[in-house]
């Protein structure tokens, strides 16, 4: 059975004026369904780029990204959007919630993008907000929530349509230690409870170590960290 996601010799380079910057130089790795991994590495090494490439947001310069053994970038724009909508959840360092919408509306957004009815999308969002422990904050706007609560809403939004892969780009990077700890705990819990595979980028070595699998990005390659 193929891995849930597999990167094969992924190269990614950017052009800065005349200079080509090689970020990924043939990174390969595989992650099985339900597996959880941390990704560490110094700043600027390309962790975010790696997440974007395997999250199908950014096509690689060379190499393949396979989901269930199929090349993700062979899909058209439309199917790719559909795929991101239902199969992948993103959480970023900043919560990136829409400031004019309430927590509930924010969490319901992927459902609305999926063209669910408002009622159905909000019902699912309510359920997910309950799971992340925010059932008492449904009608608050992001500005009225604390940093940890905002990140919980972002997590609920990423998971509302039940994706199979969660990509978290330093979800605790902007939070104090205790709050970050709480979010991490929640991630681990969700992984066990919902069986979602997850890759969590973090700078916190303590948090990274608690993950069942630890990956490190160095010189554009993904290696298993000990």
């Amino acid at each position: 059975m193929p891995a849930l996601i597999e990167a094969r010799a992924v190269h990614k380079s950017y052009w800065l004026g005349e200079k080509e910057i090689h970020v990924l130089r043939g990174a390969s790795f595989a992650l099985n369904a339900g597996e959880m991994a941390s990704l560490v590495g110094p700043s600027g090494v390309g962790k975010s780029t790696f997440l974007h490439v395997i999250g199908t947001l950014d096509p690689p310069t060379r190499g393949e990204v396979l989901f269930d053994g199929l090349d993700a970038f062979c899909m058209g724009e439309e199917q790719l959007a559909q795929f991101r909508n239902t199969s992948i959840g993103f959480v970023f360092q900043f919560h990136y919630l829409l400031p004019e919408f309430t927590a509930l509306q924010n969490a319901a957004m992927p459902g609305l993008i999926h063209r669910m009815t408002r009622e159905k999308a909000e019902a699912q969002a309510r359920e997910m907000l309950e799971i992340v422990g925010l059932s008492h904050r449904l009608d608050h706007k992001p500005g009225e929530l604390s940093g940890g609560e905002q990140q919980r809403v972002a997590l609920a939004r990423a998971l509302v349509l039940g994706p199979r892969l969660l990509l978290a780009d330093e979800p605790t990077g902007n939070l104090d230690e205790a709050t970050g700890e709480g979010i991490h705990q929640l991630l681990v819990e969700l992984n066990q409870r919902l069986g979602i595979a997850a890759i969590v980028v973090t700078h916190n070595p303590r948090l990274a170590e608690r993950m069942p699998r630890r990956l490190r990005l160095t010189d554009g390659l993904v290696v298993e960290a000990q």
Binding site: G55, L57, E77, A81, Q82, N85, P110, R157
Partner: peptide, 13 residues
């Protein structure tokens, strides 16, 4: 940024 987020959530062009 918002457009990017929407697209990462699966919003179509």
């Amino acid at each position: 940024k918002e457009i990017s987020i929407l697209k990462s959530m699966g919003a179509r062009d």
